[in-house]
Design a binder for these strands. Structure first.
Length: 490
RNA sequence: CGGGGCGUAGCUUAGCCCGGUAGAGCGCCUGCUUCGGGAGCAGGAGGUCGCAGGUUCAAAUCCUGUCGCCCCGACCA
């Protein structure tokens, strides 16, 4: 029972806590290439469930999947002025292939707008060819200077949707539809509350007209951009000659959107829900929802207890109360030679939402003993009707995790800040989401960033705005154009 | 790219100042006893001390160079 078995606590050093948790719960490991990482089965399992949930929502809303190549001609990136400006510094470029220098270097995609709209231009002639609603699951490479497991790595996995529409309004509606999907996913699957709204000009995607985002708060009161949805206007259509003939026979450029979320979400999940004992996974995203630990005192007892555990597992996985395609995900830990206490710690580190203990006493009493990961509350559950009770408990855990995360965010949200001095004090101290007025001037934003490291995370949609709108700009005292949310960000 | 730290067994590290047979804890393997919150005992496997030079009778230790990684900052999903 030495201290090296315990994680560094969040209060001691949040950053060290995060790194230790990711490594020790085997979500990921450092790879031999600086800044890139291996996503291990525990982490990939969560990503797979994220993918499935999102993919279902994309398909339900009329999108289809496709795959575009990893390599993009270097000249493509340069075709949209803002885009090249934004991405040039972080490109990985292939100059040689097959032992020869290439005539034109190939960029390893940092994002796929350019190659995709190049292809769309070939595919679209008429308004009848629109809209195109394509998503792809892919890896991208951005040569970041400072990396962090899941949050920022040289290569990461994501989905990127790219759509083309006949009108601005259609594209705008699409961008907002996706924003809604991202929000729903964050809240209902990740149990992670998010603010939705618009990015300021300086935080906007390189080449976009408008960038919408979902913005989450981590337990250290810093913000995490969890997903973005861009209305690209006609910027890329013009750069790639993506034109079509309208109903009236006129030639027009298409309107595009692009949107993405990445494996960064796994990091967001860790920092939203994790505690000093390790990961806490929301049940809906947990590859294993329930771990059964059979308990025995002597070797004589072992076969009977393992058998009872297997029977319990069969009953749980055979239950169809959640629908035939959504069985309870159950694992039995019947390893010998490891004490049950050690198993508890291990499964808690890994964030399994619910543990069921089954020992001779429980058999006798006709119950199983449950331990929630989120609250660590323990209670017996009657063996009769156990599947339904457990499923209900998992729903409760999912809902409670969301409520707890939301309560944390609200506790760290400060509204009605009108003095810049007070703002600086907050940012120098605990930080948090500060709601305040802004005159809309990028220079003000730049100054605040310089002086406090805080940036405008989001210009929130009405739902998240304060009851009374701030009248004045936090910094200049001029009339406020928007209420914005300031925070330090990952 | 600036600042800081670190490279010794799978992991965490002691030893380095002051050169002289490389040690511990965890983990791993075997056996016995254990088993309702991180087990105990006994035995065992595992190391070109990041790499390359140099100094020396002798280098993990001193010197020079080099590579890598982590953390903090500037830049970013």
């Amino acid at each position: 029972m030495s201290d090296d078995k315990k994680l560094t606590t969040r209060a001691e050093d949040f950053s060290a806590w995060y790194n230790e948790l990711v490594l020790r719960s085997e979500l990921a490991d450092y790879s031999p290439v600086k800044g890139s990482m291996v996503i291990r089965p525990n982490g990939y399992g969560i990503w797979e469930r994220m993918q499935r949930a999102l993919d279902d929502m994309f398909k339900e809303s009329g999108h289809v999947n496709a795959y575009f190549p990893l390599f993009i001609p270097q000249s493509f990136i340069a075709k949209e002025a803002k885009h090249v400006e934004g991405f040039a510094p972080e490109l990985a470029i292939v100059t040689h292939g097959g032992g020869k220098e290439l005539e034109e270097p190939l960029v390893v995609r940092p994002t796929s707008e350019t190659i995709i709209y190049h292809m769309y231009a070939k595919w679209v002639q008429s308004y009848r060819d629109l809209p195109i609603l394509i998503n792809q699951w892919a890896n991208v490479v951005r040569w970041e200077m400072r990396t962090r497991l899941f949050l920022r790595t040289l290569e990461f996995l994501w989905q990127e949707g790219h759509t083309a529409h006949a009108t601005h309004d259609e594209a705008e509606a699409e961008a907002l539809t996706i924003l809604g999907i991202y929000r729903k996913f964050a809240e209902e699957w990740m149990a992670m509350p998010v603010l939705t709204g618009l990015k300021s000009d300086s935080e906007r995607f390189a080449g976009a007209l408008r960038t919408y985002c979902i913005e989450a708060m981590m337990q250290d009161r810093k913000a995490l951009q969890a997903g973005t949805s861009h209305n690209l206007g006609q910027n890329f259509a013009k750069a790639f000659d993506l034109k079509f003939q309208t109903e009236k026979g006129e030639e027009a450029f298409a309107w595009n959107t692009s949107w993405g979320v990445s494996t960064r979400l796994v990091g967001g999940l860790v920092m939203t829900h994790g505690d000093d004992n390790g990961l806490v996974t929301p049940p809906k995203l947990a590859p294993i929802e329930i771990v059964i630990v059979p308990i025995w005192k002597t070797n004589d007892e072992r076969p009977a207890m393992v058998e009872a555990a297997m029977k319990l597992k069969a009953e749980l996985t055979g239950w169809t109360g959640r629908g035939a395609s959504d069985k309870l995900r159950v694992h039995v830990d019947d390893r010998e030679g490891i004490r049950s206490g050690a198993k508890y710690y291990e499964w808690e580190l890994r964030g399994i939402p619910l543990r069921l203990e089954l020992g001779p006493k429980d058999l006798e009493k006709g119950s199983v003993f449950s331990a929630r990961r989120d609250t660590r509350a323990k209670a017996p559950i009657p063996r009769d009707g156990v599947a339904e009770a457990v499923a209900r408990l998992l729903d409760t855990i999912q809902a409670d995790m969301f409520a707890a995360a939301k309560a944390r965010r609200e506790a760290a949200s400060i509204r009605g800040v009108t003095s810049y001095d007070q703002f600086k004090e907050i940012m120098a101290g605990d930080g948090g989401f500060v709601y305040a007025g802004w005159n809309g001037d990028p220079a003000v934003e730049a100054r605040v960033k310089e002086e406090t490291k805080a940036t405008i995370r989001v210009i929130p949609v009405e739902e998240f705005r304060s009851a009374t709108a701030p009248a004045k700009c936090l910094v200049t005292g001029e009339p406020a154009k928007y209420e914005v949310v300031w925070a330090k960000a990952y």
